[in-house]
Simulated scan of single mutants.
Amino acid sequence: MIRGIRGATTVQKNEEKEMLEETKKMIEQMAVVNQVSPDQIASVLISVTPDLDAAFPAKALRLINGWKYVPVMCMPEISVPGSLPQCIRVMMTVNTELGQEEVEHVYLNEAVKLRPDLADKA
């Protein structure tokens, strides 16, 4: 079965090091809690809010052992007034036996505000 796993995190500064560290932490947690290995991943889409342009967060996947061939793409998030700033969002499409309600979405830092109903599940 193909499922989407969502993730989101925030950073305090528009700096490459922090963006990559926080993205890596989020991606690794998404994989661990959902028992996903790189060969089960169809693709990973990453969006960033307009205030983040210091780095491509997709680069963080290349820092994870075994993720060399996972297809990943970055894009800008739409600018909505009042939306959460300095936010990195992920949609990981995976092959899994987990049911839709069993998938654990990962929200870190200030991003827990986006979906507190799902963040509490992790």
Rank of each mutant, 00 (worst) to 15 (best):
M1R: 08
M1Q: 06
I2T: 06
R3H: 07
G4H: 09
I5Q: 02
R6C: 03
G7R: 03
T9E: 01
K13G: 03
E16T: 13
L20E: 09
E21A: 10
T23P: 05
K25Q: 09
K25N: 09
M26H: 02
M26R: 01
Q29W: 02
M30L: 15
V32Q: 09
V33E: 12
V33C: 07
N34W: 05
N34E: 08
Q35N: 15
A42W: 07
A42H: 07
S43A: 04
V44K: 05
V44L: 11
L45V: 05
V48C: 07
T49E: 01
T49Y: 04
D51I: 07
L52S: 06
A55F: 12
F56M: 12
P57I: 05
K59W: 08
K59G: 01
R62C: 01
L63V: 05
N65L: 11
N65S: 14
G66S: 08
W67P: 06
W67G: 01
Y69H: 11
M75I: 00
P76F: 11
V80G: 02
V80S: 03
P81D: 04
P81M: 00
S83R: 10
L84N: 02
Q86K: 14
R89D: 01
M91P: 01
T96F: 13
G99E: 15
E101N: 05
E102K: 05
V103Q: 09
V106D: 04
V106N: 06
E110V: 00
L114T: 01
L114N: 05
K121G: 04
A122P: 00
